[in-house]
C-alpha cells in the first residue's frame, strides 16, 4: 500500500498547495460536434481519407486535409484486452471489468471500451450496446459496452 492511499500528507514534511483550476470545459471542435451528433443517433463515425477509413475519426488525414465523416458498421473484433479487478484507490470491484481495444473490419484504428464478457479472447466478434436514446448525451459513454455477437 502506497503512502498516498493512506492519505498521510499530514505526516510528511510539506508545503501545502492546491489546484486553482476547478475544472476544464473543453470545446468539442468542429469535427467533435459531428461525432457527438452521431453518438446520440447511435452511430459510430470514422473519417474517410482516400480509400481508408480511420476510427476514431482523425481530425486530419495523413495528407493534412480533413476527411469525410462516414458511419462505421463493423463487425468489430477484439484486438487486445485487459481485466480490471480493483479501482484506483484499491477497492475490489464486485465483478471484474474487461477493457479492450476493438477494431471494426471496415476501418483502420479502433476504440478502447468495455467488453461485457467473462470469456473474452483476441479476435472475438463484438458489437456496441448503446444507452436508451433519451439518456444519450453525445459522449463516448453513450456506448455502454461492447457485447459478444
Amino acid at each position: 500500500m502506497s503512502w498516498w492511499k493512506e492519505n498521510v500528507a499530514s505526516r510528511i514534511r510539506h508545503y501545502p498547495g492546491s489546484m486553482e483550476v476547478e475544472k476544464y470545459v473543453y470545446t468539442p471542435g468542429v469535427h467533435g460536434l459531428e461525432q457527438a451528433k452521431a453518438l446520440k443517433e447511435g452511430k459510430i463515425l470514422g473519417s474517410k481519407c482516400g480509400d481508408t477509413i480511420y476510427v476514431p475519426p482523425l481530425t486530419l488525414c495523413p495528407d493534412h486535409k480533413p476527411g469525410e465523416l462516414v458511419e462505421v458498421k463493423g463487425p468489430w473484433r477484439v484486438v487486445t484486452y485487459t481485466v480490471i479487478t480493483e479501482t484506483m484507490d484499491g477497492r475490489k470491484l464486485e465483478k471484474p471489468e474487461v477493457i479492450a481495444v476493438v477494431k471494426p473490419d471496415d476501418a483502420e484504428g479502433g476504440l478502447i471500451h468495455r467488453v461485457e464478457s467473462d470469456q473474452v479472447y483476441i479476435g472475438m466478434e463484438v458489437e456496441p450496446v448503446f444507452k436508451p436514446e433519451a439518456e444519450r448525451k453525445g459522449t463516448i459513454d453513450d456506448i455502454l459496452y461492447f457485447k459478444p455477437k
Partner: peptide
Amino acid sequence: RRMLETPRELAWEAAS
C-alpha cells in the same frame, strides 16, 4: 475569447 475549434483544428487552420 472562446473558439469552437480544438487546439489541433486551430493549429491546422493557421498551418494551412
